[in-house]
Amino acid sequence: MATTNSRALARLMLVPSVVLLLAWMLVPLCMTLYFSFLDYNLLSPGTEEFIGFMNYEFFLTDPAFFESFFNTLLLVGGVLLITLGGGIGLAILLDQAIWGRNYVRIMVLAPFFVMPTVSALVWKNMLMNPVNGLFAHFANWLGMTPIDFFAQIPLLSIIVIVSWQWLPFAALILLTAIQSLDREQLEAADLDGAGPFSKFYYIVLPHLSRAITAVILIETIFLLSIFAEILVTTSGGPGYASTNITYLIYTQSLLQFDVGGGSAGGIVAVIIANIVAIFLMRLIGKNLED
């Protein structure tokens, strides 16, 4: 496989990546952990003092935490539901023989490449604005009262926007997986007289299970950290109605300058993400073996 020579060199070549990532991960994380035990406000520097778990107590008992925790769950869960359901549907559709499949694929994929701030703004102003938005025009045309999306259903609106961004990702991954399905299996099922539903349920779905897990876990990692879409559309409001944990910590630390509280929140967020990460790493780790 290799000789001492190349092995030493190989270790040397790993150093930059490892050192940089170690620094990037450990240094700030330790600082966050340290700050989380301090009473530390940027507005009154020099008055830091050790206060034990107080920050955690405040953060975890703050009603805002509960609200944003559930918002986070709803956001992640809602987007996952929509993108997975839609993604499977789209993947199956795009797998059929259709005219202009490449163009269809390009169109479906496009939202993924739109930067979050642009998609949030476009949806907020041009589609969902209660006066000038396209949806409002459409409602008026139908003779209905336009919905004020970000006042009435802020979280749902954000879920819709984020789903629109992530649907292409789910569809693309699932499509790739479907295309790797052994056609002979389906033909054999045809010969056995299986209907479309049982073919989907007994052959396609199990084949997709790995891709579905991958989509769930990868999206979850990103969705836990949704930020720009909230900042641009609702700023977390009204009240905390559309604040997720990431956004809550942002307001606490950089808008209210409460470094201690924000840090405690950050550590909580890390713990939540870790739970997801463990499952994801298992999945990918398994993949490494083959």
Partner: peptide
């Protein structure tokens, strides 16, 4: 997988 808010401050 480290959430950015964990190291934000």
């Amino acid at each position: 997988m480290l959430p950015p808010v964990g190291v934000l401050i």
